[in-house]
Design a protein around this nucleic acid. Sequence first.
DNA 1: ATTAGGG
DNA 2: CCCTAAT
Length: 754
Amino acid sequence: MVLKRKPDYGPNAFAYHFPSMPRAPRSTRRRSSLTKTVEDSQICAFELLATVAGKLLLERDTSSSSNATAGKNQLGYVKDANEQEQQDEVRIVGKDCFNQEKCRENHEYNEKDLSYDEVDKDMEQACRMSKPTLLDDDTKLVSCSDSSSLEKPSRKLYRGSPTSYGKLFNGRMHNEIKAQLEVEKETARHLVCEDMVRSCISEDQVDLCIKYPSIISSDTSADEPTCMDLPLNDSFFRRRNDVNLGCRDDDDEKFSGCNTHSTSVEAFRAKHCMKDRKIKKLLSSKYWKAAPKLQEFELCNTDGKLKHVYPKRKTSNQRERSHLDTPLKKRKLFDQSPVVSYDGGSSAESISNSPEKEKNEDNSGSANGVSSSVVGPQASSVTRDSHVKFQIKSFSIPEVFIELPETATINTLKKMVMEAVTSILENGLNVGVVLQGKKVRDDKKTLLQTGIACNENLDRLSFILEPNSSQVSQSIRHEDSPSSPPCDRHQLLSRCLVNPVSGTKTPDALQDSDPLVNSTEKLVESNHEASLSIHHEDSPPSPPYGGSQLVTRCPVNPDTITPDALRDSDPYVSSTEKHVESNHELVPACANTTLEPKTTHSKALVPILESAEVLAVVPMNQNTGRYVNQNSGRYELAQCRRSELAKRRIRRPFSVTEVEALVQAVEKLGTGRWRDVKICAFDNANHRTYVDLKDKWKTLVHTAQISPQQRRGEPVPQELLDRVLRAHAYWTQYQARQGKRQLGSSKIDYDAGM
DNA sequence: ATTAGGG
DNA sequence: CCCTAAT
């Protein structure tokens, strides 16, 4: 079912041995993550916050004790994810890359059989010669593996988690948290958060991006684990990871974690490390609750250097992706948007620093989620005491989209904002820990074991907050708002419901899987696509909410924070973005609004990055075009926004599996025939164009030529990089010869070694 | 529509 | 990834 050979290639299939594919690397998992991610992502962001708050509160009372359960659950998911990945890989591998048409095409080199040089010598002969087809065998192998298990994982994911988690969380934890919060409200008020919030609100900033500077101070407890530890350890991570990280192996596995939410509650309790009341206060503060839909939080380093704010994933669809790629660099588009509308002012320092970075990152990164830039321990987070300090400078609230009639009053607006933020918080947030671009799966591991204790690693440590999926997507509307949910919306909703996951699904996952996906999966995909397209329309203005995630990084030294570091985090970002994308693509506008029970109010969160735009736009309809149409005058805004957002495609880092497929295809087909490569190895990956493949090859060659330390993102197995270099050298030489031939005498060619 | 290459 | 030029 899986293998699709193209007739053309089939015959030519070269005997290329499939590289032993480890299991599908992370990237593959994405798919599985899709389902999860959808839910998870939506759930997470705010869950995280809520949970954190709740945990903090709970911690006091109880001692930590419940990571285990979460972990167990996760494991199960992990397996699924792995399976999927494997399957994906198989599919990819299985495809033929052959082209009979041209000698060149036929020309393959088999590493085992021939060196490239040898191949050259024999090239012409080879072209003529029909090649034995190992392909069949290969394909069989592939198919077998494929058939084994793609569907299951994905389904499980879908069913599993997201929703349930959110529910549990909301129902239980939330209540608890609330209760405690109530108690602490008074005390908490003074918290920065509140101030921040207030200021923001007072400022009339529509977008709720609020940063809370020094929420957590590393100072609080040199001795004790940092606050971050709390959240990080448990379920939060997992959830977040699961959702967001579909890409990474770790992520993939983790992503399953999303399902674990039930356990997460316990985990929360377990995580009590935190002493900082600040944090607690923040969390507990009523303001937070009030905030309806925070999607992203940004954490700033206590250092005052914002390591970077992670761009929250904006909901923005396309853009986000692109941004993710080069968080720091790009985002010209996003730059426009004042990332954080509000520093929250509470901590000028951290905030001040962060803004730019944040913006950049934001652009690239998380669309919806709450992103936090956590400042880890400053230069050396590792304390002599063998304690690792983490500082979270601030949280910024992601953008919130609110629709109100022009006649609405400021008070109404404020109320709506509060509702949105509150709802977000209520749903809870998930915290994920990402180290060096990979999710930290095992919550039980110690910082030391994980390597977080190492200064070097600290700068690569990031946290992701993900709001609960359901909430995220909602958009707020004023009762009066002209745009009342149309029938369509309901329909959309229904669709979404069909696939709970869809909301959070990442397009990536879907697409990634596409190539490999078997018929059954295809069906699923089709559903997604449908939803996606819808979503897309709606979402243009607003990023996917589901994706909202919070990313925090803790660079040890500001200096150490490099683009690379950002990139390292990218995986997450990418994941988040993916979510975002998925949301856009997959989730219909309704999706945004749907998942939530409160649908009536539909509230949507917007990533900070877009905040600027949002602000301008917010008053208008951010909702998708549909709604826009309803609201006259909004359309333009939406369009503008969309144009900006839409421009860039979502960033979708190549998974190891994809790289494998690409390498294999290039080995066979050579460079310069990207269309064929595309058809051969990525025919089903609609999101990979031949240009993408060409670009990827370029980057692979570059990657292979630089030191491993300089490489970013998901590590590509050296074995593959070696193959890249060999193939590159081979085909480069080959092309050179061809050029000579054309130019000169055959003699030259011979001289050249032909 | 592809390919190649710079950004 | 994007954009552009050349094909």
